[in-house]
Amino acid sequence: MKPLKEFTIPFVGLKIGKHHFEYKVEQAFFEHFEYEDFNDVNIDVNVELEKKSTLLELHFKISGWVNVNCDITNEPYNQNIENNFDLVVKFGDEYNDEYIDILIVPHGTYEINIQQYIYELSILAVPIKRVHPGVNDGTLDSDILKKLEELSPKVKEKKEKEEDIDPRWNTLKKLLTDK
C-alpha cells in the first residue's frame, strides 16, 4: 500500500524537544485502506512528537465520530470515539515492528509514516457491539425493532415456573433450610 504523504513526519530537521502535529481524517482515508464499515468519518488526530537524542516518543490522541450502522436495527448513527496511544521509535540495524508500542527503524531514517497507527487507533476505538442510542433509551422508531419485539420469546412469570418444578426438589430444598 502506498503511504499517504500528508501522514509522513520528516523528523530529521526538527530540534530536540516537543513538536505538535494535527490531522483531519475523513472518509477518503479509510477508502485508501479499503475499509468500508464506516459511512462517514470526522476524526481529529493530535500527535505530539518528542524528539530526544537517541529516540522519538510519539503520543497519539484521536477524537471525533464515525457514522456506522447499528448491529440491531441497521440504522446509521454517529458513534463518538476517543483513543490514545504512545509509541517509542528507536534506531537499530534493521526495521522491526514486532512490538506493540516500540518501532525500530534503521539508522539513517529521516522520516516516519504514522498512517497505519492512526488507522488502527480509529478502528479500535469503535465498540465491538454498535447499538444506536435510540435503541437504549427507547426513542428510536424502527420497523425492525417492532418486529424483534413481536418475535421475542415471552418470559413466563415466576409463579408459573415454580408450579412446573418437580416436587422432589422441594424436599431437597427443605434440607438446606433445616440447618
Score class of each variant (00 low, 15 high):
residue 14 L to Y: 06
residue 7 F to S: 00
residue 131 V to W: 06
residue 22 E to F: 11
residue 144 I to N: 03
residue 11 F to T: 02
residue 152 S to I: 04
residue 82 E to L: 10
residue 3 P to Y: 04
residue 58 L to Y: 08
residue 63 S to F: 09
residue 148 L to N: 08
residue 155 V to A: 11
residue 172 L to Q: 04
residue 72 I to C: 09
residue 12 V to T: 12
residue 148 L to M: 13
residue 163 E to N: 09
residue 21 F to A: 02
residue 158 K to R: 12
residue 133 P to R: 06
residue 166 D to E: 10
residue 65 W to M: 11
residue 7 F to E: 04
residue 123 I to W: 02
residue 107 H to I: 00
residue 153 P to T: 00
residue 3 P to Q: 08
residue 171 T to Q: 12
residue 49 L to D: 00
residue 30 F to L: 01
residue 136 N to M: 15
residue 124 L to H: 02
residue 41 V to Q: 06
residue 78 N to F: 13
residue 103 L to T: 04
residue 100 I to W: 10
residue 148 L to G: 06
residue 21 F to Q: 01
residue 63 S to P: 00
residue 133 P to F: 06
residue 68 V to M: 05
residue 156 K to M: 10
residue 99 Y to W: 11
residue 4 L to Q: 12
residue 67 N to A: 15
residue 18 K to W: 02
residue 31 E to V: 01
residue 63 S to H: 14
residue 9 I to W: 03
residue 80 N to A: 12
residue 33 F to A: 08
residue 38 F to V: 05
residue 133 P to A: 09
residue 99 Y to Q: 15
residue 51 K to C: 02
residue 85 F to T: 03
residue 138 G to D: 09
residue 120 E to M: 01
residue 77 Y to H: 10
residue 109 T to R: 06
residue 102 I to E: 15
residue 60 F to P: 05
residue 54 T to L: 15
residue 70 C to I: 06
residue 1 M to S: 13
residue 176 L to D: 10
residue 164 D to M: 14
residue 128 I to K: 14
residue 59 H to W: 02
residue 168 R to K: 13
residue 59 H to I: 14
residue 47 V to F: 06
residue 143 D to P: 13
residue 35 Y to L: 11
residue 137 D to V: 02
residue 64 G to H: 08
residue 175 L to D: 04
residue 176 L to A: 13
residue 116 Q to P: 00
residue 139 T to V: 10
residue 38 F to C: 01
residue 49 L to Y: 07
residue 112 I to E: 02
residue 3 P to D: 06
residue 49 L to E: 05
residue 74 N to A: 11
residue 40 D to G: 11
residue 91 F to K: 01
residue 77 Y to N: 08
residue 146 K to M: 13
residue 148 L to I: 15
residue 28 A to V: 11
residue 162 E to I: 15
residue 171 T to S: 11
residue 59 H to P: 02
residue 102 I to L: 14
residue 16 I to C: 00
residue 151 L to N: 14
residue 69 N to A: 14
residue 97 D to A: 15
residue 66 V to I: 08
residue 141 D to Q: 15
residue 70 C to K: 05
residue 114 I to F: 03
residue 76 P to E: 03
residue 10 P to I: 00
residue 58 L to G: 07
residue 18 K to Q: 12
residue 131 V to C: 01
residue 117 Y to S: 08
residue 168 R to V: 11
residue 49 L to K: 03
residue 115 Q to L: 07
residue 58 L to K: 05
residue 159 K to Y: 10
residue 110 Y to I: 13
residue 89 V to H: 01
residue 124 L to R: 04
residue 120 E to S: 00
residue 11 F to E: 07
residue 85 F to Q: 03
residue 80 N to E: 15
residue 76 P to C: 03
residue 59 H to A: 15
residue 70 C to E: 01
residue 21 F to W: 07
residue 150 E to I: 09
residue 16 I to M: 09
residue 131 V to M: 08
residue 179 K to I: 14
residue 52 K to W: 12
residue 64 G to K: 07
residue 153 P to W: 12
residue 58 L to R: 05
residue 172 L to N: 05
residue 1 M to A: 12
residue 93 D to W: 03
residue 59 H to V: 11
residue 99 Y to N: 14
residue 174 K to Q: 15
residue 137 D to Q: 04
residue 118 I to L: 01
residue 150 E to G: 04
residue 81 I to Y: 07
residue 50 E to M: 12
residue 62 I to M: 05
residue 120 E to F: 02
residue 104 I to T: 15
residue 33 F to G: 09
residue 107 H to W: 13
residue 76 P to L: 06
residue 110 Y to L: 11
residue 62 I to S: 02
residue 62 I to H: 05
residue 168 R to F: 07
